[in-house]
Design a protein around this nucleic acid. Structure first.
Lengths: 227, 227
DNA sequence: CGTTGTTTTGAGTTTTCTCAACATGTGTGG
DNA sequence: CCACACATGTTGAGAAAACTCAAAACAACG
């Protein structure tokens, strides 16, 4: 299920770095260019006009909101092949920031939508991608609304494991603060959850940003059982 | 902003009960029929095949997930004109249940997507609707991840006020339990938040399900300030 | 090798939850 | 129309989870 969602919920790049999957897709890449950002640089800000949408070519990007008092909610992390800046109408709803050094392809928003709408095949693909995205967001709602701290962290680790397609030497590309802001927790609570799982023998840490899953069964159990 | 989002984020019914807004839209209503449900009846269940998507003709419907231990997360409430059952691929991710007596129009899922994809105009409209939906879901993520109890309740009341387009005699069509499950709280906490706002003179209650906003300024303040 | 930023741990506080009791409302049959 | 029963909503007290603030350990970097 998670695999199917991943495959169909995003466009992906072929070897040349262009959009793959459909004959019409090449048209999308016309008049686009790739921009590079250093770690920590901002792609766009909440409230700005949104003339572009973006696709990650390399690196990892986060999209977040900031509340008045400085609390942040990280909507999502975007890896290679994923589109961002799409959920908005005329104005960006999130701030996007490069976590690592990265490169993104910029699409003119209106041109992009027009091209997609003019091809039934692209339309359908794109609709399904959006629905998949919606699906992912909805799953996160359950997490934020109904799961306890350690459960949220466990779910997040399983997602990392899936994305990196391994249970060994899994890498956090983002800080504890980013993870906390993504999971609706504080950094301290994330740390305590990780420590707890380390103590229980579920995880083994190489460094703070590199770990392996030693007891996948238990991790799944933690991810599915509340407090 | 909220108004623009509402208008553009959903298809709406014209007087005959068919889809309006585009010349091609009529094609969508072909081969569809309207089904009625009593309050509390289930439209579809999490995990079922998803051959249809639905549009509310009258009444109000909730879409939710249930976790192993019985906790529920209400993804959203759907009023007249709104589409549901769309976020999923082949299988329903949520259970949908009529809150009040209601009528819904059923669209064959594949037929619906094919028709939409074949019309650039419909495609574009639909894309924007989906993005608007995504937007709404994302806003809820901030709420669930970063807002305290009374703030969540205040935000929810403001949404009701907007939807019903008044600050007087606003009606809860759903139970406290539904509200709690929507906001990621318990019924008790929802009650306490409402009582607190009543005490502060922000709200006045006619009955448990009918209230007026007496101090809109304060309500907005509560909705925007944490703890 | 010190400086700076990130991660981890600890102690005490706050918020929300749980469980239990009570109140209010709604609907049905007498 | 009333009385009862059952569902829904409200309040209180104590427990649990997560948060805040502070300090210590650890890493990365010049």
């Amino acid at each position: 299920m998670a695999n199917a969602a991943q495959i169909s919920s995003e466009f992906h790049f072929d070897e040349e770095g262009g959009l793959a999957h459909t004959p019409d897709a090449a048209a999308l890449a016309l008049n686009t260019n790739v921009i590079r950002f250093k770690a920590g640089e901002t792609l766009y800000m909440e409230g700005e006009a949104a003339p572009f949408c973006y696709q990650v070519v390399s690196g990892i990007v986060k999209e977040y909101n900031t509340l008045e008092d400085g609390r942040r909610q990280v909507a999502d992390f975007y890896g290679v092949g994923e589109m961002l800046g799409l959920s908005e109408m005329e104005v960006q709803l999130h701030t996007a920031e490069a976590i690592t050094e990265c490169a993104v392809r910029c699409y003119g928003r209106d041109q992009f939508l027009k091209t997609v709408a003019s091809s039934p095949d692209l339309s359908r693909k794109f609709l399904e991608a959006l629905m998949g995205r919606l699906h992912r967001t909805r799953e996160r709602m359950v997490m934020l609304g109904r799961m306890c701290a350690i459960q949220r962290v466990a779910v997040f680790l399983l997602r990392l494991s899936q994305e990196q397609n391994t249970i060994n030497d899994i890498r956090f590309q983002m800080s504890r603060q980013d993870i906390a802001d993504h999971l609706g927790l504080t950094t301290e609570t994330v740390c305590r959850a990780l420590t707890e799982m380390k103590k229980r023998g579920v995880l083994v840490f190489e460094t703070a940003r590199l770990f392996s899953i030693h007891d996948a069964r238990m991790l799944h159990e933690i991810a599915s059982k509340s407090a």
